[in-house]
């Protein structure tokens, strides 16, 4: 769970408020768990954003696991195939300003989230 510290540092640097920091760290924690549990492990990259006067953090999670057959279902709150509450993907989307997912069955999944100040 080292990802939390790294995301926290990046969020702090981007000047996010305490609540926004907590939201993006929690979202990252959900996605990291997904990557480990369902994707069989993968990697995350964190990027600091600057656009005009706005600052933010973007995190990309990538795995080469089985992929998600039905993305719409997976995004529904409460949908789960694992041992969680089925709030990982839907929750991460709820907690981010930007959310996108690219997945292919048998190839893997990439989820991108961002939170702006």
């Amino acid at each position: 769970m080292r990802i939390r510290q790294i995301v926290r540092a990046a969020a702090l640097e981007a000047g996010l408020s305490l609540v926004d920091q907590t939201k993006i760290i929690t979202a990252a924690s959900e996605l990291a768990r997904n990557t480990l549990d369902h994707g069989g492990g993968g990697h995350a990259s964190i990027e600091r954003l600057q656009e005009g006067g706005r600052r933010g953090v973007r995190i990309v999670f990538e795995d080469t696991g089985p992929g998600i057959p039905d993305v719409d279902a997976a995004l529904r709150p409460g949908f789960t195939t694992g041992r969680g509450m089925g709030l990982g993907l839907s929750g991460a989307r709820q907690l981010s300003n930007e959310f996108s997912i690219a997945t292919e069955v048998g190839r893997g999944t990439r989820v991108t989230i961002a939170r702006w100040k």
Binding site: T22, K23, G91, Q94
Partner: peptide, 13 residues
């Protein structure tokens, strides 16, 4: 903590 409570509610928990 307040920030945790807000996040949990947004998360749907």
């Amino acid at each position: 903590r307040p920030a945790v409570a807000i996040t949990l509610v947004e998360l749907g928990l």
